[in-house]
Design a binder for these strands. Structure first.
Length: 185
DNA sequence: AGGAAGATCTACT
DNA sequence: GTAGATCTTCCTA
């Protein structure tokens, strides 16, 4: 079942946590979300929507929840989902997936054979799924690209965000405990 | 024109 | 496991 817009219309941190274990679907490819990070617009120096960052990021982060936000960093497309309460700003970064379907296609696109190395990083998973700027602003409640619900149970770990230069001290990173596909432990 | 960016790969200690 | 080079876009001067 596809997640409704209502799912994304909550506090960014809560959505980040609840997205764990859900299934990202793009064409023939499916992957379980195993790692996420929450980013806010204002008062978050690590956010792309902070101060003079790219306009389209700010705009989208303020837009309707449930949209895809994609931007380039160091030759890597990063995939975020706009998620926030009314009149707020925020998005959830998908940091890592566990490949479920379309693994052959992912291997071909990534040029590697090791399953564990296919989608265990924010830049890797976009490449494996064939996601790029064309998908920026896409509505995840439509058919092309969306997220499926799941009732799986697991332990969730809450830590600081990684790979950023500012705003490191906040506990806004979530991942599934003991999962092999988390980018870093 | 120059720099920064939420990363990745490779090559070492 | 850590360190350095390098990739592309967008922002500011």
């Amino acid at each position: 079942m596809k997640l409704p817009r209502k799912f994304y219309s909550k506090n960014t941190k809560i959505v980040a946590r609840e997205l764990l274990g859900k299934i990202l679907v793009h064409k023939k490819c499916k992957g379980k979300i195993v790692e996420t990070e929450a980013y806010f617009g204002k008062n978050d120096p690590a956010s792309r929507a902070y101060m003079g960052r790219p306009k389209f990021c700010v705009k989208l982060m303020n837009d309707k929840p449930g949209k895809a936000l994609i931007y380039m960093v160091h030759n890597n497309w990063l995939f975020n989902i706009v998620a926030h309460e009314k009149n707020e700003t925020g998005a959830v970064l998908i940091r890592a997936l566990e490949p479920l379907e379309g693994i052959k296609i992912m291997k071909k696109r990534r040029g590697v054979n090791d399953i564990k190395n296919l989608t265990n990083g924010p830049g890797k998973l976009t490449k494996a799924f064939g996601i790029d700027k064309r998908h920026n602003g896409l509505d995840l409640t439509k058919d092309n690209l969306f997220i499926e619900n799941s009732n799986e149970k697991f332990e969730i770990v809450n830590t600081t965000r990684i790979g950023i230069s500012r705003g490191k001290e906040r506990l806004l990173r979530f991942y599934i405990k003991d999962n092999e596909f988390v980018s870093k432990k």
